[in-house]
Design a protein around this nucleic acid. Structure first.
Lengths: 252, 252
DNA sequence: AAGATACATGCAGAAACGTGCAAGAACAGG
DNA sequence: CCTGTTCTTGCACGTTTCTGCATGTATCTT
């Protein structure tokens, strides 16, 4: 059994059954539980699954379900979200990506802020329903379960018809050389489409994502305006990015 | 059974039935009451449920906010939803309208039903994210706050590109002569667009809507396949509708 | 007030985890 | 073809986490 084959099997299982039990898979494939755990750890680090005690679950950041449902985002994400929310101008238009950090941004927006929010995430749209002054525009399309956002041809096409002042993107990996990456090709394409429709694009990246890279590139550094992170300004990765001319907004 | 899976089960139960009895769940899942209590304590500490003596209750929607987790539908709506959910065939495609009754239908769909659901409601999309077998398609457009669904030109246009076996519509008024009505012109247009894309259209109407009418007409009786209601089959309005040749599905 | 039920806590066995290590396979270069 | 390197895999070990039971306490019901 090839390693890649095994990973595919795991991802298939995750999509089909909605969960992976390390012990069962090990028995089924006749390999050690250690290998399964190693694979799951790798997949999780690429943002393709969510590791839990005993196995793994589909990565569904904002999904109603399982433990991924953090009502209260961890401290780092909240701070990043709060800085990002500060970039939104009254009367302006914001394109908001999916994911937990973006959801935290939606929650951090003042209740009575009068602006337009464009999103492809039903979760974020639902979260903004109680902002009476906020004009909401939903980009439709096929919903990708693992990321809980609309992706694919229809969604990308829908994105062509909007434009905004600011785009806030969440990603899986932030790497000085590789750029911004994510674990799914369709998602990457969608994020590109979103970024292309805004005058400025900022990336939301809590510190644990710095220095990591996933399979699919979203954008090179040249095409983004800046990075919002809770990492230390003297962090090695942050300094390499600064040297590359990337504007860094920290939560300090 | 994964610990995370158990927690999800609890949250699902909370959303579906509006309460959790620790003893019952323990028996149902074949685990100790202590584990259930521990889980409930954890969930409560995250603000995901309200711990009470003997079990737990959902937290108020205002607190959780972002998810579809509003209070449980009243009994009548739940019964209507359950009948409606029974119309959905595995492998089929369903167009699901917005509104509380439609949301109840979404919740009543079996967790592992393999079908396609097309909706213009972010709330309903969010509610179906944890159905791994369900293909979700979101119709985008401007979100109308009072009804929390996408309406308007973009949404109607998006609807032109889909088709389904079944459309389930919620309305505000159900009147033997006037037909189906709702309070907003854009919503009415959207509902018409949805109905036009399905082979069959059924209307969801809890009994309190029978005999009432709102300002804008959605569809005349000729264009719908039937009505799903919890009203008595001998109700005056129901009998008038039967006389007009409308198929009535009751919850009895 | 008393019995019943639910609860928190401590504890022990079990299960899952991470790490280091060694055997083996795949690979590159000589 | 041989050799050294790298990567993968499974095992062993100590650690952490989970789960069910027992105990004593709090809360509800009658």
């Amino acid at each position: 059994m090839l390693a890649a084959e095994r990973r595919d099997h795991l991802l298939g299982l995750l999509a089909r059954e909605g969960k992976i039990v390390a012990k069962d898979v090990a028995a089924e494939l006749g390999i050690s539980e250690d290998s399964v755990r190693r694979d799951l750890r790798d997949l999780a680090s690429e943002g393709l699954c969510l590791r839990v005690y005993g196995g793994a679950l589909p990565v569904s950041p904002a999904v109603v379900g399982y433990t991924a449902r953090q009502t209260v985002a961890p401290d780092g994400k909240r701070k990043v979200a709060s800085v990002a929310a500060g970039l939104v101008r009254p009367g302006g238009a914001l394109i908001l990506d999916g994911g937990t950090t973006a959801l935290a941004v939606a929650r951090a927006l003042p209740q009575d802020l009068a602006c337009t929010v464009i999103t492809h995430s039903p979760t974020i749209a639902a979260a903004l329903l109680d902002h009476p002054q906020t004009e909401l525009f939903m980009l439709g399309g096929r919903i990708f379960k693992h990321s809980a956002v609309a992706c694919g041809a229809a969604a990308v096409e829908a994105a062509q018809n909007v434009s905004a002042d600011l785009c806030l993107l969440g990603v899986t990996g932030v790497h000085p050389e590789v750029g911004l990456t994510t674990g799914d090709a369709e998602e990457a394409a969608m994020k590109r489409a979103l970024a292309a429709r805004a005058a400025e694009t900022y990336v939301l990246a809590s510190s644990e994502k710095l220095g990591t890279a996933s399979r699919f590139r979203v954008l090179p550094w040249e095409e983004i305006s800046g990075l919002i992170t809770d990492a230390d300004p003297h962090d090695a990765v942050v300094e390499r990015l600064t040297a590359r001319g990337v504007e860094i907004l920290t939560t300090g």
